[in-house]
């Protein structure tokens, strides 16, 4: 018998099937070429930070509710009043989180396993979202960097729009004439992840959405 304690556990994404949607009507044949993609990014490290107003931690985070920013390789998302989600690679997140001042009423919860994440990218991304969510996805109402919580295909989700930056680094600046496609991080409770992934893929079929 193999000693189970000697086995190195490997993180498993809740999205186990990325092609369960029916065949897309896209012109592109593979996700590489597809202009509109849905990617599983569940394995990213996510730490939830709560800090009451006027704590040092709040000043360190320096992101208001509804906004996000990239700092030291992690994305800080102001997803509720006095509540932030820090997203990135494990080392970057832990480095950042370790620096957070814990004075006052400040708490941390590791959300890596609680929240699944997918990324929807492409010029038609907001048209896909219009089919599964009742919010206004125009750039005036939901600009690059915006953070909002809403029901997506009847699942409560936290959404970050970040066309020009990802965890790790800002995207290489595109040629000024090139249109940067919108890109959305959609985080949901892990248990809903496969359902939501399939539901978004299905809704995006008419625009040629493909799993990445």
């Amino acid at each position: 018998m193999v000693d189970p304690n000697s086995v190195n556990p490997v993180f498993e994404s809740p999205i186990t099937s990325t092609n369960s949607g029916s065949a897309g009507t896209s012109i592109g044949t593979s996700a590489d070429q597809a202009a509109l993609t849905l990617a599983d990014e569940s394995s990213l490290t996510k730490t939830l930070i709560r800090a009451e107003p006027r704590t040092k931690a709040e000043r360190q985070l320096d992101v208001v509710f509804g906004a996000s920013r990239l700092v030291d390789g992690v994305v800080i998302s102001g997803q509720r009043p006095s509540e932030w989600l820090v997203i990135g690679e494990a080392n970057d997140v832990s480095t950042f989180v370790d620096r957070i001042d814990r004075e006052g009423h400040v708490s941390l919860v590791d959300h890596t396993h609680s929240r699944a994440m997918m990324r929807l990218t492409g010029l038609d991304a907001s048209r896909v979202l219009e089919k599964v969510c009742s919010l206004d996805w125009s750039s005036e109402m939901t600009p690059n960097g915006a953070v909002v919580s809403a029901s997506v295909a009847k699942v409560g989700c936290d959404i970050v729009r970040n066309d020009t930056f990802r965890h790790g680094s800002a995207l290489a600046s595109s040629a000024p004439t090139e249109v940067i496609p919108p890109s959305y991080w959609i985080a949901c409770d892990r248990s809903f992840a496969q359902y939501l992934f399939d539901a978004i893929l299905d809704a995006g079929q008419e625009f040629g959405l493909l799993p990445a």
């Binding site: 939830l48 708490s107 396993h113 929240r115």
Partner: peptide, 11 residues
């Protein structure tokens, strides 16, 4: 001073 966080499927 209490923070409540659902972790149902995180665990």
């Amino acid at each position: 001073q209490v923070h409540v966080t659902p972790v149902t499927t995180g665990l």
